[in-house]
Design a protein around this nucleic acid. Structure first.
Length: 302
DNA sequence: TCAATCACG
DNA sequence: ACGTACGTGATTGAA
C-alpha cells in the first residue's frame, strides 16, 4: 500500500507536472470546465489542479511545491467552512441544525451530543468522528449499510444512529423525502439559485438505478447550491479587484476554496475583501464563514 | 477503450 | 431478494 501511494504521487504529480510548466510564464496553467459536472461545480483538467495532494505527509510535500509568483508575493487561500452542511441546514429549515450554526458551535460535536444524548463537553473523539461521518453521509444519501461500511458500527447500530439523527434533525429527514418526491413529480431537482439537474432514472424499475437517482436528488441541490455560491463570490471578488485597482490575481478554485497570488503590499486589504465577499455572496438562514490563510506556499497558506 | 485505483472537495 | 454515500480527472494495465 505504501508502494502504491508513492507510485501515485510520483507518476501523477512529481513526474507529470514539470512537463506542463509554460516556458513563457514559468507557471502551470490549468483549464477550468464550466459545463462538465452535473451539479454545477467546475472541474479542472490538464492538469487537474483540484486534486493536488494534501492529506498524507508525502502528499503535503507535493502541495508545498506550489509557491507564490515572486519574492514580493504570497499565496492567500480562503475557504468556506462547512458550506454544504450550512446549505442543507438552510434549505431544510431544520431548527436544531440552524441553531447550531447560529451559535457558532462545532457542528460535528453538536451533532454527536444530540444524537448520542451526552453533554457537549463529554462528547468522545469516537463519537465526534462518527457524527462527522453521518453528517457527510447524509449529504450523499447514505444508508445504514453504507454507514456501517464507513465506520466500525454494525448495521443495526448504524441504523439506530441514523434514526437518532433524523429524530434530532427532523427537518433533514423532510428535506430528503421532499427532494425525492420533487424529482418524481417534476423529473428534476434544483438549487436555491434555480440550477436544475434532470433525473431521468428516478422512476426506473431497477432499484439500484433508481436508488442512484434518488441519492442524486438528495445531493445535487446541496452540492450545486454550494457551487452556485462560490461562483457568485468569484464574480463579485473579480469585480472588486478590478474596481479597486488591486493587482493580485485569483488563480485557483477548489470547490470551496479560492487561491490568490497576492502582492505582499496588498495582502491585508485583499484578505478583508475576499472574506467579506465570500461571506456575503448569498444570504442563507445561517451565516457563511470563510477562513483565510497566507503563506509562501500553498501548503503553508492553510 | 475500458475498468480499477486513487488523488481531491 | 436486492443493493447499498455525492461530484470529479489522471494513470495504469489488460482486452
Amino acid at each position: 500500500m505504501e508502494w502504491r501511494q508513492v507510485g501515485k504521487l510520483k507518476s501523477t504529480y512529481v513526474d507529470a507536472l514539470p512537463e506542463l510548466v509554460n516556458p513563457r510564464t514559468g507557471r502551470i496553467h490549468t483549464t477550468f470546465n464550466q459545463a462538465v459536472a452535473a451539479t454545477g461545480r467546475l472541474s479542472s483538467t490538464n492538469p487537474n489542479m483540484q486534486n493536488i495532494p494534501v492529506r498524507s505527509e508525502r502528499g503535503q510535500r507535493v502541495r508545498d511545491l506550489f509557491v507564490a509568483g515572486g519574492p514580493d508575493r504570497v499565496l492567500l487561500s480562503a475557504d468556506y467552512s462547512q458550506i454544504e452542511l450550512r446549505v442543507i441546514a438552510s434549505m431544510s429549515g431544520d431548527a436544531g441544525m440552524i441553531d447550531a450554526f447560529l451559535s457558532g458551535e462545532d457542528i460535528h460535536a453538536a451533532t454527536a451530543s444530540k444524537v448520542f444524548g451526552v453533554p457537549l463537553a463529554e462528547v468522545s473523539r469516537e463519537q465526534r468522528s462518527q457524527a462527522k461521518t453521518v453528517n457527510f453521509g447524509i449529504i450523499y444519501g447514505v444508508s445504514a449499510f453504507g454507514l456501517s461500511q464507513q465506520t466500525n458500527l454494525s448495521r443495526s447500530e448504524a441504523k439506530e444512529v441514523i434514526e437518532q439523527y433524523f429524530a434530532t434533525y427532523p427537518g433533514i429527514k423532510k428535506y430528503i423525502d421532499d427532494q425525492v418526491a420533487a424529482a418524481r413529480a417534476q423529473g428534476y431537482v434544483e438549487t436555491l439559485l434555480g440550477r436544475r439537474r434532470y433525473l431521468r432514472d428516478i422512476d426506473s424499475r431497477n432499484q439500484a438505478v433508481r436508488g442512484h437517482s434518488e441519492r442524486n436528488a438528495i445531493n445535487a441541490p446541496i452540492q450545486g447550491t454550494a457551487a452556485d455560491i462560490v461562483k457568485l463570490a468569484m464574480i463579485r471578488i473579480h469585480d472588486r479587484l478590478q474596481r479597486e485597482g488591486l493587482k493580485s490575481p485569483m488563480i485557483l478554485q477548489v470547490h470551496d476554496e479560492l487561491v490568490f497570488d497576492a502582492y505582499s503590499t496588498e495582502v491585508e486589504s485583499l484578505r478583508e475583501l475576499v472574506k467579506a465577499e465570500m461571506e456575503s455572496a448569498f444570504v442563507l438562514k445561517v451565516p457563511l464563514v470563510a477562513d483565510t490563510g497566507v503563506g509562501r506556499t500553498w501548503l503553508k497558506a492553510h
